[in-house]
Design a protein around this nucleic acid. Structure first.
Lengths: 352, 352
DNA sequence: CTACAGCATGTTAGCGTTAACGGCTTTTAT
DNA sequence: ATAAAAGCCGTTAACGCTAACATGCTGTAG
């Protein structure tokens, strides 16, 4: 009787016309019903809905978007998905977008500027309603594309620099300074730095700059450093910590600043496993404030990067702009990263 | 002179027509150049490319897709993004798709069937070239939609059940059985189970079923169990472990099977922090084989869920089918999860 | 009883691109 | 030299939908 949804896949894909024929009204009326727009009598509405359900009709947004020149997509361009931080930003974005018509589409750049440019180009070719993109540093061409796109652009994570349009993030330079100050105030003097081998991670670089800047003001500098790339961050944290400590036995380091919590956690474990007193012998701090740290035997000092909040705020900017249709823009939101002292950045025991 | 890319955003968005006028050829020729399809002389090609670059033209895939009825999107529908496992599947998918014209679009269901149905509907309305969806359990409507979509569908993660079209995954029932057998063989007898409060996580359920089934064959059963939801998995692992151990002091448990590595790691830390001999006093095992475990002081026994490989294989199925244009399908790939004994599932010390 | 809302529908004309085909010009094969 | 093929580019007609306007119909005010 019914063509029931789920039977033989129709050779010719279903269109509004099929539904209109099945329900005896015009395509326009079907379109109105399916979009809940315009006046339709309750009777025809029911008839149409029934026919659509019966046929298993799924609207074609491609055609709809072309006709209405409205696309409910938001392009989200981030460097990576594998390090805890961006998934959480995504969660924030999705939280907000779920309450709207908008839908996020994600592109991954692997921290490569050329890749970012390509991804952006591809994304823009879908004519999204807005773009959320990580960082303030982009190729000239990418900046030009975004400037010319005529849609809201929100650059996230970082506010140390010039935004194209809107921006939401923290000052990583300030985050680095703040951590340095806390370490100095706690009385640590011989400080090691452990980070990633990523010249293109501008945010890590800015934190490092802010960090060394404040050290310099107190007449200090980084005593030694260690970098890694790839592999299990936790394990690398262990290995790097062992390496840097063994390299400095003569004049031992008394603090290790890690560029992210995962390697910091690895370092913490190394210390605990080897009977090193934390924070008595050596203090430790990471960066990001990942939830994960809560389960560690000792809570690593860190600085919260406001990831969820950044995602939310960025999505809200887009949503608002889409709703109010154009105008304004240029909104800059600088969140304040909070220092979490944890158990690994207590005042150092006074030298005897 | 030039309208240079990145200047004032044009009121009227650029189209092929603008490029064609700027370069003095027909729209069709511009289209050909921009898609590298069909014969165009080197001279005009250069002319067109230059004009497009100059104007900052970005093709409109919406229109292109409608005209050619080819959409280079692959819908990826997964339950969550926040638990390590799906990001890795995504990485596998992206790895493969990067070598093709295809591009993944992700939808998150939060393990809710109705949400999955909605997300699927929305995805299908973009007329993607294929669908990769987690699990074999879906609402009737969802199954109907996929059956009728006329595009390759790959259900991933699990192969214990009936697939709509293709499937790539492991048998979670078998994984559970295998782990149970290993535990029994190692001589453990009083086994606790720790997992998530998720009736809708069918894969966890199947593992559990397989697990208890094998125990039963040896005349054993789960001695006690503990469930959690939300929060930091590592911390929850700790807490649950403490709870379950304290609840069973009279007849102490000698093995804990965790439904994922993260809570397993938390449990491991709890044991180590409290001087419990692992695996002497108690054995531990998790599930997933996350890279993270490498950094732990002791390597947790686990079973690799082949996440990366599943992503890759699924994407390859889609890519192949898109290329070869239709036909075939129904491919089922069952990967074999490998048991990793680690340090926490050694033969139990013989009772005195 | 006309007039004029306002509701419920239909009609028309694109949206920006590409498939398909056609025509002209140049090569290549014979 | 002539046919056939290949190269190059243009024209036309969709693709499936929606904005905007047009139409008929009901009811209600005057």
């Amino acid at each position: 009787m019914s063509q029931g949804s789920g039977n033989t896949p129709p050779k010719r894909p279903l269109t509004l016309r099929d539904v209109s024929e099945a329900s005896g009204v015009s395509e326009m009326t079907v379109s109105r019903v399916l979009r809940n727009r315009g006046d339709v009598s309750e009777a025809t509405r029911a008839k149409v809905l029934e026919a659509a359900r019966e046929l298993g009709y799924v609207p074609n947004k491609i055609a709809g978007a072309l006709a209405s020149s409205r696309v409910n997509l938001v392009a989200v361009i981030i460097p990576s998905m594998s390090n805890m931080v961006f998934p959480e930003v995504m969660t924030g974005i999705n939280d907000v977008l779920e309450g709207t018509e908008l839908q996020a589409v994600v592109g991954i750049t692997n921290y490569k500027p050329e890749r970012e440019e390509t991804v952006l180009y591809q994304m823009l070719s879908w004519r999204p309603s807005g773009v959320i993109i990580a960082g303030l540093e982009h190729t000239e061409a990418a900046k030009a594309m975004m400037g010319a796109a005529g849609i809201p652009i929100v650059e996230i994570m970082d506010t140390d620099g010039e935004a194209i349009d809107s921006a939401v993030g923290i000052s990583h330079r300030r985050a680095g300074r703040k951590m340095a100050q806390a370490i100095i105030d706690a009385g640590y003097k011989r400080i090691g730095f452990l980070g990633t081998k990523m010249p293109l991670d501008h945010r890590a670089r800015k934190r490092f700059e802010g960090f060394t800047e404040v050290l310099a003001k107190s007449g200090l500098e980084i005593s030694d450093s260690e970098f890694y790339s790839g592999g299990s961050a936790l394990k690398k944290g262990r290995e790097m910590t062992e390496a840097i400590l063994k390299r400095n036995v003569e004049e031992p380091l008394d603090f290790l600043y890690y560029s992210n919590d995962m390697i910091g956690a690895g370092g913490l474990m190394y210390c605990l496993d080897n009977g090193i007193d934390v924070p008595g012998d050596i203090g430790l701090a990471g960066f990001n404030g990942i939830e994960f740290l809560d389960g560690l035997p000792r809570k690593l000092a860190t600085m919260d990067a406001c990831r969820l909040e950044i995602g939310r705020a960025a999505a809200e900017i887009i949503a608002k702009r889409v709703e109010s249709d154009g105008s304004a823009g240029g909104e800059i939101i600088t969140l304040e990263p909070s220092l979490e002292i944890g158990d690994t950045l207590k005042r150092k025991k006074k030298p005897v």
